[in-house]
Design a protein around this nucleic acid. Structure first.
Length: 415
DNA sequence: TGTCCACTGGAACGTACGGCTT
DNA sequence: AAGCCGTACGTTCCAGTGGACA
């Protein structure tokens, strides 16, 4: 037996024999829908009563749901739909539901393709005109006499990217159906998203509106407590850890998803350390780990040009000891491209890449006016310099850039 | 008070690609 | 095979702009 397999053997044995602190770790995954949803009774009742007409075979109103991330919107909708489907099954009514995350789908075409898939129509991932896919969807509904409840999660991101044409068509679809019926549930994280909509679309989509307020700390406490009961072995989670966890999540606009993540990761950490309790310290470690893992994941999977742009920003900060501005980043970027033998992109494109890095939280940019010296962007790195250096020192493409001294910067220093 | 810098960011367009229909 | 489609990723063009400076 090799040494490696001995080590593995030990790890697995420890895992099997050690005192597991988890009763059921699946219940802490983000997609788990619990049997109890504390502090959301009002929303559950409201959505339930709006959808209830479907049980009689008539169409319920469209619903627009607002609320920040982790306020339970998706969970509540899925929960109500699950119950509705069960009831419809008992009553012998044929209802279908289709849940689509618009941000993940990305385009009108792919949303439609998913809608088609939900009623059993196969659509190629490219090749058809969007209008053609829509017609097939409509025909499919009519021919099969389907009652379909469509949930469009993160609908705001779809509208921002593609405009509201698809929504317009979907809100009008019932007028063109002879037998089938549809109802729309739009879920939005962005409260201002209505402004992007055409008045007709808005009035049709928001026949009913439901708002999800952020959870406050005591509410998060209840949620975590309920979930901990089914996830962990009794008495594993200390009260201090529970309180800290909800306090941290409450500070981040009452995000329950975040709180549950924190709980899951701290559980895993505590388990790995062979502990039989989850303490406040574990929660803090988990918070650290989640952030670190995210940064590593993002930095390593970035497209090549974004990595080079980031290296440029890093070098400017490292050598000039001050935040970068767009013009400097672009000059350094061009020099770096030459070194690793790739064609540089245009400044316009690099400017977009910088914006993208800002949106994912790797950079922090601020528009700055230097009066006579023009307008530019001040670009700061959000992560620690050493973190970037560590990660990119091992990168196949950019490892040789991280210790390079750009001539442009050396000249700038002399001035 | 007007000028002018160094960009920003919107919009239209180009190209390559995989894949459809006819 | 021809013609079209959506998608990704990019370029080109250009109007717009906040505020230091003359």
């Amino acid at each position: 037996m090799t040494i490696e397999s001995d080590v593995l053997e030990n790890i697995f044995n420890n895992f099997l024999q050690g005192p597991s602190i988890f009763k059921n770790r699946e219940t802490l995954r983000p997609d788990y829908i619990p049997k109890k949803l504390p502090h959301r009774n009002q929303q559950i009742r409201r959505i339930g009563s709006i959808l209830a007409p479907f049980l009689h075979g008539s169409r319920g109103s469209n619903i627009l749901i607002y609320g920040k991330t982790g306020t339970g919107k998706t969970a509540v909708v899925k929960y109500v739909l699950k119950k509705l489907l069960e009831k419809a099954h008992e009553a012998g009514t044929a209802i279908k539901t289709c849940y689509i995350n618009c941000r993940l789908a990305g385009t009108d075409y792919r949303v439609l393709a998913k809608l088609c898939a939900s009623i059993g129509i196969k659509i190629p991932f490219t090749g058809l005109a969007t209008g053609e896919v829509f017609d097939r969807f409509k025909n499919g509904l009519d021919i099969n006499n389907f009652f379909l409840i469509i949930v469009l999660d993160e609908i705001d991101s779809l509208v921002k990217v593609m405009g509201d044409t698809l929504l317009y068509e979907l809100t009008r679809i019932n007028e063109n159906l002879t037998y089938g019926r549809t109802s729309l549930i739009g879920i939005s994280n962005d409260l201002l998203f209505k402004e992007f909509l055409d008045a007709r679309v808005l009035s049709s989509l928001s026949e009913e509106e439901v708002v999800f307020r952020p959870y406050i700390a005591p509410e998060l406490n209840d949620i975590l407590y309920e979930r901990a009961k089914i996830s962990f072995v009794d008495n594993v989670l200390t009260e201090g850890a529970l309180n800290l966890c909800s306090a941290l999540a409450a500070a981040e606009h009452g995000d329950a998803r975040r709180a549950l993540d924190l709980l899951r990761v701290s559980g895993e950490l505590s388990e790995r350390q062979g502990s039989n309790k989850i303490t406040e310290d574990h929660i803090r470690q988990a918070q650290d780990k989640i952030e670190k893992d995210r940064v590593v994941e993002v930095l390593t999977t970035l497209p090549l040009h974004s990595k080079v742009v980031l290296c440029g920003t890093y070098l400017i900060k490292q050598i000039m000891m001050k935040p970068a501005i767009t013009g400097d980043v672009f000059e350094v970027y061009k020099e770096l491209c030459e070194i690793i033998n790739i064609e540089p992109l245009t400044q316009r494109r690099v400017s977009s890449l910088i914006n993208e890095l800002d949106t994912i939280g790797i950079l922090n940019t601020k528009l700055l006016s230097l009066g006579r010296y023009g307008r530019t962007k001040k670009i700061k790195l959000n992560s620690n310099l050493s973190v970037i250096k560590n990660i990119y020192s091992q990168d196949a493409w950019v490892s040789k850039l991280i210790n390079y001294k750009p001539k442009y910067l050396l000249n700038l220093k002399l001035k």
